[in-house]
Design a protein around this nucleic acid. Structure first.
Length: 858
RNA sequence: GCCGAAGUGGCGGAAUUGGCAGACGCGCACGACUCAAAAUCGUGUUCCCUACGGGAAUGAGGGUUCGAUUCCCUCCUUCGGCACCA
């Protein structure tokens, strides 16, 4: 199609000059690096994105996970942040008063490790990095409200992190305990369970396998909220995250039962999910670390028991935890009494029983538990069947269902449904495969145990309390003081913050550098005023990030962690975006934190973040995770310099499904760059109006409104890639319409107007430049409303319907969009091609799916 | 072993409720412009077949249906989480 010829004298100056030198005119005039900077400065000067309480508008709190100030903004920041920004901008145009804040999660190891190496103070380095990253963040052209920036390592912030610790302490939710904890020998600090990952139990941060240490540490009682954390009914969160959190907490229902030891007659509580199999308990197994082991061990077994304990202690958790490892154990010589039938059963110790789950002791029912079965076989312990499959007494059973040998003895544990046998008055009680109270056998036995006072219904969790002590300097101090006489007491709140000392020697010793400081830890007891010492460990940085969304509300407020008026207006967070890797860490901690503070009366509502969406990851071009060592890192700064921020933003939204992520494709970005240039050309080339058909105008308007419907829908649903394709399609349509002479028509003006407003959230700079400077519309496009959708305009006049004969498309017919079923039917039958395929036969069936297709069956 | 997610052209991906599979873009091919190249613009691009026509195809196999990428069953592959959890 011939392009409209533009007379040279009508072209703007820059283009004219370019045309005269014979150079490419568009490239010369399209210079995003210049206008992007210009608009960023103007928006900033005009305070365009300040979010101020305005009760006349509905509020919208859009939050995206804050970065650690590593000093460089990378793809891992751009990919979540720019689409989140586009959506926040969209909500703003939809009429919401939008808060979209940004800050820095500024405590943490890298700054401290750098200090150890270089001697540069973490505060100095962190502040430098923040200055640098702030500038990089601004280059995105995001609508961050920088007046609300919060930085977690500043005393005005961590004062309140400490304050929150004290509130938790006052509620009895913070406690100190000596226990075996996970310690990362590389990071030189303890870690919470959530921060130990993978089969080899490595440190989430640095990948080093962790070791166990017995240490006195501070914990938060997250387990107190386990049941509530399992409830997600108020939340619009991805199923994936809910599943990960549910599995992590891993609630299991059953009963606790008291067994008595023969020697000393101690009560030994055990937890079981199968109280219906109590009569089949033929021995007990204690964890080697169980406190009663020494007492019940008889002199003749002492040596073997001691050796086994020592060996178990030497083994790492990984070795002990290997599933395929053969079960080992030793007999203690002691006995326990099974409370349901008074049977005298031997007590063994074995490392397959873990001190960290349940009570560290189990009843072993070899007939109905695979692990107990293997153990009983190996050590020749008795196996008593107490559940029998109902319908099939002697017939051979399939694998995994309690196969029997020739003598009828079990060859493997039976874990299926059946009836209870060998169980006294419970014989013939039905047992199904449900857990807890849903299982009639279990339910009946629990009732009976409770009645007899030997057991009760009980729930166990895999979830552990949150270990928050870190033996590092660069974190919020734990505001506790220890006195010889009065024990641990919190620092009085009017003395907060407990400031980090500046003159510290950083040494990776495994103990906090604060401990090595000559004077810092010396203080006085808040109870008696006598000399006392401060806690020298600092808090896990996940404590800082548990409440940063609250500090954004009023980052400089000094009468509390946040201004209640701001809280009441903005909270809860409406949309939260970030990576899935925090599913069982930050996202679980912050929910716990919110619930605890709700119970303290500090915050309202049950949940802090109502809607959550996770983006995927941008991989290197080789399909591997981007990392310096692999050399596959793509630097956004370089791309911004080459293409401009709008192109990079658009590509972040376009190149992959956002929730999936994909490997980087450096050729692919050329596509969005081309789109930006073509958009520029569409608006800056002056095309004289021509004579244009009503049909063309009608079609253009229809496409504009159809695109609006699609783009609106996709913004609401985080389907960013199709927003871009729809806009690309509309642009292509506009080129066609312009070539058909549409320029000058009111439909053309509307198309230009709508196109730019839809483009504004995606590519804020070019949209502003074209809107303000080329269309001469009022500054700023970012203060405009989202376009008004017109259903009538979007409607099709005529539609093309495929006609299927026996499921194959044979022809297409064109009918009015409003055509009724009969009209469509006769149009289909009137088709020559259809008649050819029918070969004179009457169709058995004619299905008309209105607006979709016609299907004929012969 | 258990739980979860995902498999669509050479590639990223599209397909509101079951209704024209492959939108949009990358790449590639050809053409225009150019001395030439780049850029730009235009055309084509799932595969197969002696090809103005026909057939096959959304990881594999089966089912429901006039009709399945979409719903159901079985299996395979990849990724993620948990794992001697009593």
């Amino acid at each position: 199609m011939p392009k409209a010829v533009v007379p040279v004298e009508k072209k703007p100056k820059a283009i004219q000059a370019a045309a005269q030198t014979g150079k490419n005119e568009k490239d010369k005039s399209f210079n995003p690096q210049v206008f992007e900077k210009k608009w960023q400065e103007k928006w900033e000067a005009d305070k365009l994105y300040r979010a101020v309480i305005d009760h006349s508008k509905p509020k919208f709190y859009a939050l995206t996970m804050l970065p650690y100030p590593s000093g460089d903004l990378h793809m891992g920041h751009w990919f979540p942040m720019t689409p989140s920004d586009a959506r926040a901008r969209f909500m703003r145009m939809k009429g919401y008063n939008v808060l979209f804040p940004m800050g820095f999660d500024a405590f943490g190891l890298p700054a401290e490790n750098a200090a150890i190496k270089s001697g540069i103070h973490p505060m100095v380095r962190t502040r430098d990095n923040i200055v640098r990253m702030r500038a990089q963040l601004r280059s995105m052209g995001a609508m961050f409200d920088w007046d609300r920036e919060a930085v977690s390592c500043e005393p005005e912030y961590y004062k309140w992190t400490e304050w929150f610790f004290i509130q938790l302490y006052k509620m009895g939710l913070a406690y100190r305990k000596m226990s075996p904890v996970d310690f990362c020998p590389n990071c030189n600090t303890t870690l919470a369970r959530e921060q130990v990952w993978g089969d080899d139990r490595h440190c989430e941060r640095c990948g080093t396998p962790v070791i166990k240490k017995d240490l006195d540490q501070w914990f938060f009682k997250t387990t107190q909220y386990a049941d509530e954390l399992l409830r997600f009914d108020e939340l619009d969160w991805p199923e994936r995250v809910k599943t990960l959190q549910t599995n992590w907490i891993d609630r299991s229902e059953g009963a606790s039962v008291i067994f008595k030891t023969e020697t000393g007659s101690h009560d030994v509580e055990i937890f079981t999910t199968r109280p219906d199999t109590l009569w089949g308990a033929t021995f007990m197994v204690f964890s080697p670390e169980h406190p009663l082991v020494d007492e019940i061990t008889t002199p003749e077994n002492k040596a073997a028991v001691e050796e086994y304990k020592a060996q178990a202690a030497r083994q790492s958790d990984i070795q002990r935890g290997a599933v395929d490892k053969e079960k080992t154990g030793v007999y203690t010589g002691g006995f326990a009494i099974n409370p349901v039938n008074q049977a005298r059963i031997p007590i063994w110790i074995a490392d397959y029983v873990l001190m960290s789950y349940g009570t560290g002791a189990i009843m072993a029912v070899p007939a109905h538990d695979e692990r107990d079965f293997a153990f009983a076989k190996k050590y020749d312990l008795p196996i008593v069947e107490v559940i029998r499959p109902e319908a099939s007494p002697p017939s051979p059973l399939p694998m995994g269902e309690g196969r029997r040998g020739e003598g009828g003895e079990l060859q493997e544990a039976y874990i299926g449904a059946g009836v209870m046998v060998n169980s006294g008055q419970f014989n013939d009680t039905k047992v199904n495969t449900e857990k807890g109270r849903k299982n009639p056998g279990i339910s009946a036995v629990i009732d009976w145990l409770e009645q007899k006072g030997i057991g009760k219904e009980s729930v166990n969790y895999r979830y552990r309390d949150w270990l928050i002590s870190r033996q590092r300097y660069w974190g919020a101090p734990i505001p506790m003081i220890h006195c010889e006489v009065h024990g641990w007491n919190p620092v009085p709140e009017d003395q907060l913050p407990v400031l980090l000392p500046e003159d510290v020697e950083w040494k990776p010793t495994g103990e906090s550098p604060l401990k090595l400081h000559p004077t810092w830890k010396n203080t006085t007891c808040p109870v008696c005023g006598e000399p006392a010492t401060r806690e020298t460990d600092t808090m896990d940085t996940f404590m800082c990030s548990s409440w940063y969304h609250l500090r954004y509300l009023s980052p400089h407020y000094d009468k509390g962690p946040f201004d209640p008026a701001e809280y009441d207006y903005w909270m809860p967070v409406d949309t939260y975006t970030g990576g899935i890797e925090h599913a069982t860490m930050h996202l679980l901690y912050t929910r716990f934190f919110h619930k605890a503070m709700r119970d303290a009366g500090v915050v309202k509502g049950n949940e802090p973040m109502m809607q959550l969406r996770n983006q995927g990851m941008v991989l290197g071009e080789d399909g591997e995770k981007m990392s310096k060592s692999r050399g596959n890192v793509i630097a956004p700064d370089v791309l911004v310099k080459k293409y401009g921020a709008d192109t990079v933003r658009a590509y972040m939204m376009f190149f992959a499904r956002w929730e999936m992520g994909a490997p980087w494709d450096s050729q692919g970005i050329e596509g969005t760059a081309r789109w930006m240039r073509r958009t520029w050309t569409l608006f800056t080339d002056q095309t004289p109006p021509g004579s244009v058909s009503d049909q063309t105008k009608r079609t253009l308007r229809r496409r504009v409104h159809q695109t609006l419907r699609k783009v609106t829908h996709d913004f609401e649903n985080f389907e960013f890639n199709t927003i871009i394709s729809s806009l690309m399609e509309l642009m292509n349509e506009m080129y066609k319409a312009r070539d058909a002479g549409a320029a000058g028509a009111p439909e053309w003006s509307e198309a230009q107007d709508y196109y730019l407003r839809m483009l504004a959230p995606v590519a804020p700079h070019i949209a502003e430049e074209l809107w303000t400077n080329h269309l001469g519309k009022p500054y700023s496009i970012h203060q405009q409303q989202w376009p008004q959708f017109d259903e009538t305009a979007a409607k099709e006049d005529v539609i093309e319907l495929p006609v299927q004969i026996n499921g194959k498309v044979r022809d297409r017919i064109t009918v009015p969009a409003e055509a009724g079923e009969d009209e469509i039917k006769s149009a289909a039958l009137a088709s020559e091609i259809v008649q050819k395929y029918l070969e004179g036969r009457e169709p058995k069936k004619v299905i008309v799916a209105k607006g979709r297709l016609v299907s004929l069956v012969v």
